[in-house]
Amino acid sequence: MIYINGESISILLFFVGVYGLIARRNIIKSIMSISIMQVAVILYFVSANTAPGSIPPIGDIAQTLQVADPLPQALMITDIVIGIGVTAASLTMFIHLYHRFRSTNWQKIMKKRNRYD
């Protein structure tokens, strides 16, 4: 079962997100798919740069021999914050969109939008 590791699962998750973006017309599901992609990226960064048996770079690590690479983890804290911001902003915009167009469907909203032009 060596194939079930963080790396391959994260790539799988990433493309699950991409599938959701392509195949779902619901805007909330699109936003959820983007969140799934972001989680996949975070999982990739953290798991791909960790050697088996190493410990996270937190607390007193002076005695430990193997410590995981701290840089990806630091980067991913930034990415988690960005991810929350992106989700919050897009949900806010979605609520406004829903109030104006009364639909959650990309296709229907596009048709209604073009009527305004």
């Binding site: 983007i34 992609m37 990226v41 902003a89 406004h96 104006r100 032009d117």
Partner: peptide, 25 residues
């Protein structure tokens, strides 16, 4: 039409930047 154009722009670019970050990883 602003809110549709804005949301569209935002989500498409966020998707693209997710690709970028995956490649970066």
């Amino acid at each position: 039409v602003a809110i549709y154009d804005g949301l569209m722009y935002f989500l498409i670019n966020v998707v693209a930047m997710s690709f970028f970050l995956m490649g970066l990883g």
